[in-house]
Design a protein around this nucleic acid. Structure first.
Lengths: 195, 195
DNA sequence: GTTATTCCAGACACTTGTGTATGGCAAGAG
DNA sequence: CTCTTGCCATACACAAGTGTCTGGAATAAC
């Protein structure tokens, strides 16, 4: 009665290294970026992690609960990068604007795909949409502060912040992949127009 | 042996009025907007149309073929609105810019949700992404022409067209719903900054 | 060295979607 | 009126996903 080779089924021959709740969330994040919410399937995530679904329900009650956790994760980590720019001590308005552009162009700390994926998700989930709105308003507020430091007042600072932010969101929404160099070449024009 | 009330099962008591291929595509379009590609299910569309899936496979070989038809439909009808603006006879650059803003704000001919939905779709389908890219480039070309009519030259016209277009895409991507009045109030600022 | 806890494998029942096959009504052609 | 063609209902087979349950291995606790 063919006993299965139980031991070698393990994720490697390494010592036991349990996944933990965060690993499932991270896998869900990647899946969301690559395939959208429809791609977040417990089976697929398990395969991606090199296990079966067995352990999933130890961490989460349901797939729905995983999605909630994923959204929370995004909300927690998506405003910090913008918040610290206007609050940077001893920097001029021009410096801060440059910091903002760098944040977007370098794409090191800020991952636009992560952002875009959540935004897609929001289009079909009012709950997610609400969260995204809150984050957007916070970010625009921070950018508006930058334009105030540049000397703009009132509504003009607000509209300039909007144009800047919406433009960037649109850029990512288009799914363009321009080289870093091309984007740097266009930067002076952007600076002239916006700031 | 309980014969079913066959006659009254019909979509109404009206005379027979077959759906036709386009009706299925239109239903798919609505479903895409409301729920994304995952929401495009043959069963749901049938329910929406008041029939069963019986007739679907008379028009389409598969669900996949419906999606292809839907993408084609979008590509065919999504550049025309932009194309005719720069080609409008006897209009100044300022007029044309205003026509562009009107096209976006009125949201009569141009349905931003239809656009956004396809863009979301493109994020997880390279085939769709390709089509969307082509459309975007065409549109930006038309807008660039408007800025040339406004007197801008070379790269500046190009970047201004980009900022304008990307900003608008971003605006819709954010899923904001501002009143027409609010948007009209902000318009002078936009005009000052962009044109 | 027991014992308990943590995490995972695999089988099961259930649900929901696709595509096929068959039969039948309705409307126009003859 | 008859017959053909267009369009739809319904039943069926199949595939794929979710959530539950049971058992078992690996590690930590004692």
């Amino acid at each position: 009665m063919a006993t299965r080779p139980r031991t070698s089924t393990r994720r490697a021959k390494q010592a036991r290294q349990p996944l933990g709740r965060d690993a499932w969330i991270e896998a869900a994040r990647v899946a969301l970026i690559e395939e959208g919410t429809a791609g977040i399937e417990v089976n697929k995530l398990a395969k991606r992690l090199g296990v079966t679904r067995g352990g999933f329900y130890w961490f989460f009650e349901s797939r729905e609960q995983l999605l909630d956790a994923l959204l929370d994760h995004w909300a927690e980590t998506s405003t910090v990068l913008f918040e610290r720019i206007p609050k940077a001590p001893g920097r001029s308005g021009a410096d801060k604007f440059k910091m903002l552009v760098d944040l977007w162009i370098s794409e090191k700390e800020y991952d636009p795909r992560w952002d875009s994926a959540v935004r897609d998700w929001a289009r079909t989930s009012s709950k997610v949409l609400e969260t995204v709105h809150e984050v957007d308003l916070k970010r625009i507020g921070f950018i508006e502060q930058i334009f105030r430091d540049l000397g703009y007042r009132g509504k003009e600072a607000h509209v300039r912040a909007r144009v800047t932010y919406y433009h960037q969101v649109g850029y990512y929404a288009l799914g363009i992949h321009e080289s870093r160099q091309v984007r740097l070449e266009l930067m002076p024009y952007y600076t002239k127009i916006l700031a």
